[in-house]
Design a protein around this nucleic acid. Structure first.
Length: 684
DNA sequence: AGCACGCCGACT
DNA sequence: GTCGGCGTGCTC
């Protein structure tokens, strides 16, 4: 008998001989067991995914023998999920095994005597929920909360958990605290029915805010899992999960693949967050994986957000998810009023002299400064500005990366934010040799300068720029006391300083967000504004400065018309053939070699696949597969100098996978290149 | 991931 | 002349 073994390496399953007698010792089934097998002369731990009578004909000639059989790791459903992952993300199975915490599981096996099954200790008794606290929370968050209609659906979630029905929900909430409150409700209602749960948040910082309420409910059953744990901590966490001591996991993206034996519930908070998408290794999307894992393992899945992704709303419209609308959880009086004012500022009418700040925002700054209140300024970048030639309109770029260089006035240097390269500011324009180079646009540094200048001229005195934060990267966010009047930062300040509330906020150049070369630019902008408004107090305003106030997205945003936006955006995506109505797969061909020959070869391969596609689906014109490229793009990987990209795009979502496999197998024959495949890429 | 094989620069 | 650099390729 033979077994296919997967190693946590960039490898497909390899075939090994099963030692005689071993099978009967394990009831004739080794599937899902960790085994030790020789690989390139060294014994390595791997996972058995299938057993068979005869080895595959095409496989290796001198098949080696399994050296040791260890604990059971993966159920049949886990193995089929692994296969699905490898298939969907077009990666070798070993790459799919890695994020499964396989190596941690091996360490656990090795340290605590291999061979035998670890007996699950049975789930510890559920702790009494902290009822007092929850009631208190409800009172302060939403005094007249009207639960009935929501509760019905919520109970359905709980029933789903109890019945092991496959059910996914998309919940739209008006605020982050209510998102958390809802989750609390689910656990209070369904707590005793939950055996195995995963709660995902997009960033590590958000774990903290859910920790104590969840500990109140689950006590020792709760386990934290994220990528910043040390090796040791990770192994410890996985040990708790494998042994059954912990069956409720709170963590980031990677936690979705925690090796839980049973799962009855998965929650994905802020499901729209781009942090859920991986950019290396197995490039899986945490939210999509959650839905798929829920389906395969029969768990209820709850996706929630203040501003859901177009994908998820689409999926709810076509019946894949049940939509729960909690936006009406708005309290009319009381302390909680989520719909804060959003003001669109027409810069054509009201930009002040240096064109980065408007009269309205300046007035608001003066007003708030007098009242000792706080204002958040959001700018597009760090540093002072870009440098643009007034004569030829050329913007200074990094010679290596072809990305704009950022001017740091304080150090009088230009810096490439991508590769870190620094250079002196040139005397004249590289393009036209003119001497008319000027700062263009505004970063945090320039805003600080601008603001100090403006406020000093008025009746307000700023204490030597004190309290103005220009370097939000500072690890120590404690620098920001509650009395810090003005914070200037890039958008990720809102993520890092979630608990700090501002009296107003201003996005100084929303046009930069809206005009990003990304088909999701409008969606991202909507989400960004919703995010920012979360940090603004109830009676405060969010100012959006724009040179294009006629932009339809701004009108949707201003009136919080998410439904209108969704309709508009979906029709745009439809007419251009973008997701969610199509699927995109990107292929990056990375190399350090001369690019011209590879470019030619790649072109030929692409043409071949194009011909193949046309032959197979020529009569369905609208269902065809678009193959774009190859084109040379700036290399996204530091260790490779060149990158050639091919994009595949089609409304026929299954056919595109098939075509991608053909393309990949041909690209694989190229020498001296590395190929990165990204299914459903976020950045293209 | 490792580890071997392989083809170009400064040392005994 | 060799030692060794790491870039490239293979692992049942």
């Amino acid at each position: 008998m033979y077994a296919d073994v997967v190693f946590p390496l960039k490898l497909p399953p390899l075939t090994y001989r099963i030692p005689t007698g071993a099978l009967s010792e394990y009831n004739g089934n080794l599937n899902g067991r960790i085994v030790k097998a020789p690989l390139r002369g060294r014994s390595t731990y791997g996972l058995v995914t299938s057993i068979m009578d005869k080895p595959e004909i095409g496989g290796g000639k001198n098949i080696k023998e399994i050296q040791g059989i260890h604990r059971h790791f993966a159920s049949e459903s886990t193995i089929s999920f692994l296969k699905w992952l490898s298939d969907y993300y077009l990666s070798p199975m070993g790459v799919a095994l890695k994020p499964y915490f396989f190596e941690e599981a091996i360490s656990v096996s090795v340290h605590q005597k291999s061979g035998g099954e670890v007996k699950a200790e049975g789930t510890p008794a559920i702790q009494k929920p902290d009822v007092e606290r929850n009631i208190e929370e409800r009172r302060t968050l939403a005094p007249d909360i009207d639960l009935p209609s929501i509760t019905q659906s919520l109970t359905a979630v709980c029933q789903g958990i109890k019945d092991k029905d496959y059910r996914s929900f998309l919940l739209q909430v008006p605020s982050i605290p209510l998102e958390h409150l809802f989750l609390n409700e689910v656990f209070n209602e369904a707590g005793s029915g939950i055996h195995g749960a995963i709660i995902l948040v997009p960033e590590i910082g958000q774990i903290e805010r859910l920790l104590s309420p969840l500990q109140g409910i689950f006590g020792e059953r709760l386990c934290i899992l994220h990528s910043r744990l040390t090796k040791r901590e990770k192994i410890e966490a996985i040990q708790r999960v494998i042994s059954g001591r912990s069956d409720v996991i709170l963590g980031t993206r990677s936690a979705v693949l925690a090796p839980l034996k049973n799962i009855s519930f998965i929650a994905v908070l802020s499901e729209h967050s781009p942090s859920y998408k991986g950019e290396e290794g197995l490039r899986y999307h945490g939210r999509d994986i959650a839905v798929m894992r829920g389906f395969i393992e029969g768990a209820g899945v709850l996706l929630s957000s203040i501003c859901p992704s177009i994908e998820s709303v689409y999926n709810s419209k076509i019946g894949k998810y049940t939509f729960l609308d909690a936006r009406s959880w708005v309290v009319s009086h009381g302390t909680y009023q989520p719909k804060k004012k959003i003001k669109i500022i027409n810069m054509r009418k009201s930009a002040l002299k240096r064109r980065v700040i408007s009269e309205e925002v300046f007035k608001e700054a003066k007003r708030l400064h007098l009242k000792k209140e706080t204002l958040l300024f959001l700018v597009g970048r760090k540093g002072y500005s870009l440098i643009r030639c007034e004569d030829c309109n050329h913007i200074l770029k990094c010679s290596g990366c072809h990305l704009p260089l950022v001017f740091y006035k304080s150090r009088d240097m230009l810096r490439c934010h991508y590769c870190g390269h620094e250079e002196r500011v040139p005397e004249s324009c590289i393009e036209c040799k003119g001497f008319n180079t000027k700062p263009s646009g505004a970063g945090t540094e320039r805003m600080k300068e601008e603001l100090e200048g403006l406020l000093k001229t008025g009746p307000i005195i700023v204490e030597k720029g004190k309290g103005l934060l220009t370097e939000p990267r500072d690890r120590d966010s404690n620098l920001l006391s509650d009395f810090t009047p003005f914070v200037i930062g890039t958008s990720y300040v809102t993520r890092k300083l979630r608990d700090k509330m501002f009296d107003s906020a201003a996005i100084l150049n929303i046009d930069a967000l809206l005009s990003r070369p990304d088909f999701r630019a409008y969606e991202r902008t909507f989400q960004e504004v919703m995010q920012v408004s979360q940090s603004v107090r109830t009676d405060g305003s969010t100012f959006l400065q724009t040179w294009h106030p006629e932009n339809i997205v701004l009108r949707f945003i201003k009136s919080y018309d998410f439904d209108g936006f969704y309709k508009y955006e979906l029709s745009q995506r439809d007419s251009l053939g973008y997701p969610p109505l199509s699927r995109i797969i990107s292929f990056n061909i990375l190399t350090n070699r001369e690019t011209s020959k590879i470019m030619l070869d790649t072109q030929n391969i692409a043409d071949g696949v194009r011909a193949h596609n046309n032959k197979n689906s020529g009569h369905h014109r609208h269902m065809g597969i678009d193959l774009l490229g190859p084109i040379e793009i700036p290399s996204p990987a530091k260790s490779y100098r060149h990158c050639i990209q091919i994009l595949m795009k089609s409304r026929a979502k299954k056919a595109v996978h098939l075509a991608a496999k053909i393309l990949l197998s041909r690209l694989g024959k190229l020498k001296g290149v590395r190929i990165n495949t990204d299914v459903d890429p976020l950045k293209i």
